[in-house]
Design a protein around this nucleic acid. Structure first.
Lengths: 347, 347
DNA sequence: GCTACCCGTGGGACCGCTCCCACGCGGCAT
DNA sequence: ATGCCGCGTGGGAGCGGTCCCACGGGTAGC
């Protein structure tokens, strides 16, 4: 058991192999392999002998060897643009990881986390992913012009995206009902008798941002209100972007009485800017964010926000990917999860 | 190039092997291997031929095969207790990952993310880690009684911890100067003429929490102030814990005029509770947090907080681990990185 | 009593790479 | 010319599994 007594320079103690187990159990390699892989065609007697030998030797199968012959790695990659780990306010990043991890762990799959720093690294990434290191790929924050998903499609590597690039989206993906969330937010503002409702969007090359903007438009139209394009400002999901957009909106339409922001961080920037301009929130201007992140609970006033079931999205992504790996091309390729309006003080 | 034309049921196109490259380049396997691994003992002519063949075939080495013979996997695991992904306020979790990822990527190492849900999973984890799937292990949020590090030590798997379990800590680790940060915070409060300074700690089975508490004590003693044990309340790094601790402190010492909290989230809970008790922050009671997380910037008032260089901690962990993997037992085993007090409005 | 079948089993042939040994060949000293 | 050295090189052996084929022995069917 203890290799601690060995001199530090010694090679790491070599672990027992399948052969060793077979020898100790007095059976052949094939039988040991069958026991390990749960084959039913093993006598109770042999099975017991093998299991005891495994326990005595502390045998653990070598993944590389198995992987070499089965051509599976039992691991999947989660690809995240590095910039997103900064931008995404909590709990997005960790919640996705938690969901993915929990969806995977039951299947004995390992999670390879790949942060992509910049374009030059994308090329290297493509190499990694073809190195037969992973059985499938999960991607978050895919942009409309992202080419990596196409490459994965072409290489026939099972892939599931968080969100879609456009529609139709040929690859499997999971997304929140962004449009529905946006509609609920705007409806809530209308019910609070707000009439001049502005919106600060995310980058419009991302489908989430577009879908939230569309929801905003639809809710207004449903209420019989003509959309005033001057009430729409493009942001980038950051606080600073939110401030800039808010300044611009105030300049264009000083008398607006509500803002629907495409993220909490953006909303918090908007709140700061509104206050700087002497407006009270929510008395003069109501504000609603998106994500229900930790920021929403800690701003002043706490933000009303649209919550996405992020952890469940991660779990669902994992499930879709496992299905796709198990049986190429089967399973439904698109899942939309519901959003929920969390009402706090800002609207 | 295109396997897209094949029927979906077809096995994934088998990738070219080293043999194929050798045949195409008109050389032996050995020579191709040498080129790939950058051996100098290859003639310019052969090297060129091999490189061309690799490019033409789109050859990518198979990791499993290499791994099987070299007994290296070129990947390391980052082990995170799942509860921590919830508790750690941003930016800790993602910043550590970013740092680790950047420290690793240069060395061509891959990052395996392992969330540990509960004790039962720890056992499975131990199995994973001995499966020869990783060359080393990084761990965050190690508790004092955590046995996994000992196991890793015994198995002679290179390991680096974020923070230490106690001291001395036999394993390599990286930590922030928690004591120094705490001292700086308390000194700042003293300079603001606060005299009745309370503290809300983290769970005392974690070294970070202990070190911050020690720093608090030292700063007071240095200033010639006797530590009043009634001004010390134990929290758990959560907001609710912060609120409960603050209530207790107000009960014990109603006239306290400052609080040093061991985390921003705790501090934000304390602020809420202070306000509920009719105290103004910072006028009546000054508050300082720890972490300089996104929460600190968004509370009202924005929190003065102690910043840790988290991303750099991650990078340093990766560096230490790579050193340890390259040459067992060499390299210095302990790195302490400086903290910095970020002054905002709360103190 | 002989053939047919099935079940459990052992072990050979690989998977794709690295390691290392042996070999050929040109250049230099003898 | 002969011997020696060293450089580049080819290819056998193995890493530790899985897959699959062939085989032995029991049971059932005729």
């Amino acid at each position: 058991m203890s290799s601690a007594a060995q001199p530090p320079e010694a090679a790491r103690a070599r672990r027992p192999t399948l052969d060793a187990v077979a020898a100790r159990a007095g059976v052949g390699r094939g039988t040991v392999s069958r026991v390990i892989n749960g084959s039913p065609k093993v006598s109770a007697h042999s099975r017991a002998a093998v299991e005891q030998a495994i326990a005595e030797l502390g045998y653990v199968p070598n993944r590389a060897a198995r992987s070499l012959v089965t051509r599976r790695t039992d691991s999947v990659a989660l690809v995240v643009p590095e910039s997103e780990t900064r931008l995404f306010s909590e709990p997005y990043f960790s919640a996705i990881i938690r969901g993915v991890s929990s969806g995977l762990s039951g299947a004995g799959m390992q999670l390879l986390l790949v942060l992509v720093r910049d374009e030059s690294e994308r090329a290297r990434l493509a190499t990694y992913l073809t190195e037969q290191r992973v059985d499938g790929v999960l991607m978050v924050a895919v942009h409309r012009d992202d080419t990596l998903p196409d490459l994965l499609d072409e290489l026939a590597i099972p892939t599931v995206l968080a969100g879609r690039r456009g529609h139709p989206e040929p690859l499997g993906h999971v997304r929140a009902d962004n449009g529905g969330g946006a509609r609920a937010a705007v409806r809530h503002l209308l019910e609070g008798d707000r009439r001049t409702i502005a919106t600060i969007t995310g980058p419009l090359d991302m489908d989430v941002a577009r879908a939230r903007l569309d929801g905003y438009r639809e809710a207004l139209q449903t209420a019989g209100i003509t959309v005033d394009e001057e009430l729409i400002a493009v942001g980038d999901f950051t606080e600073e972007g939110g401030r800039a957009a808010m300044r611009e909106l105030l300049r264009r339409r000083p008398h607006l009485d509500a803002v629907f922001a495409a993220s909490d961080v953006t909303a918090s920037g908007a709140v700061l800017e509104l206050r700087a301009a002497g407006r009270r929130v929510p008395d003069d201007v109501a504000v609603i964010g998106f994500d229900d992140s930790i920021v929403a609970r800690h701003t002043d006033p706490p933000l009303t926000s649209v919550r996405q079931p992020i952890e469940e999205m991660g779990r669902t992504m994992a499930r879709l990917l496992l299905e796709e790996i198990a049986q190429r091309g089967k399973g439904h390729r698109e899942v939309v999860l519901p959003t929920e309006l969390v009402v706090r003080k800002s609207a």
